[in-house]
Design a protein around this nucleic acid. Structure first.
Length: 158
DNA sequence: GATTTGGCCGGGC
DNA sequence: AGCCCGGCCAAAT
């Protein structure tokens, strides 16, 4: 069964992001920067949640972004699930365009038929996003645009 | 498309 | 610590 490249998959395919960079050591809990040892105040690293929120805010009207891409934009590759978790526990009161986040299949992640599903879909359609067979065409509405993703991966942020 | 399989990570117990 | 479960992902069947 050719079960060879398993570990290779993520690493190689999903963005040659070798940028697992910093953290990587499991927990990151960057709470508010504390280590102000003697004065050298390290610039408070934003919490992962804050970065995710910020990334979501960038999604333009009429566009959608997958959990994975939100994570990438937030500088947290491979933390798609965290995006879901953060979203789940973030009060919509924040004026956050949470509804622009959908899964990599171009579908709304809530169970079809649920209120949540209907709510999200309504928001998206209100922005002109069109659903075909319950799916959003990511080539058309996805953000950031694929080309851009690729470029940044290969060339780095301009 | 649908499923399976393996991987990733954070949170809760 | 260990185990299990997520608004996940992607390659392979």
């Amino acid at each position: 069964m050719a079960s060879r490249n398993k570990a290779a998959r993520k690493t190689a395919s999903r963005k040659a992001s070798n940028k697992r960079s910093n953290k990587a050591s499991g927990k990151t809990s960057n709470k508010t920067s504390k280590k102000t040892r003697s004065g050298v105040a390290t610039v408070a690293p934003q919490s992962d949640a804050a970065r995710i929120i910020a990334a979501i805010k960038k999604i333009p009207r009429g566009k959608v972004c997958t959990y994975g891409n939100v994570a990438d934009v937030a500088g947290l590759p491979r933390r798609a699930r965290l995006v879901g978790t953060v979203l789940r526990q973030t009060p919509a009161s924040r004026g956050l365009p949470w509804f622009r986040v959908i899964n990599a299949s171009g579908r709304i992640s809530f169970p079809l038929g649920s209120d949540a599903y209907a709510r999200q879909r309504k928001h998206l359609e209100a922005e002109g996003i069109d659903f075909v067979g319950g799916r959003v065409d990511l080539d058309r509405y996805g953000w950031p645009p694929r080309a851009k993703l690729l470029d940044e991966l290969l060339w780095g942020p301009v």
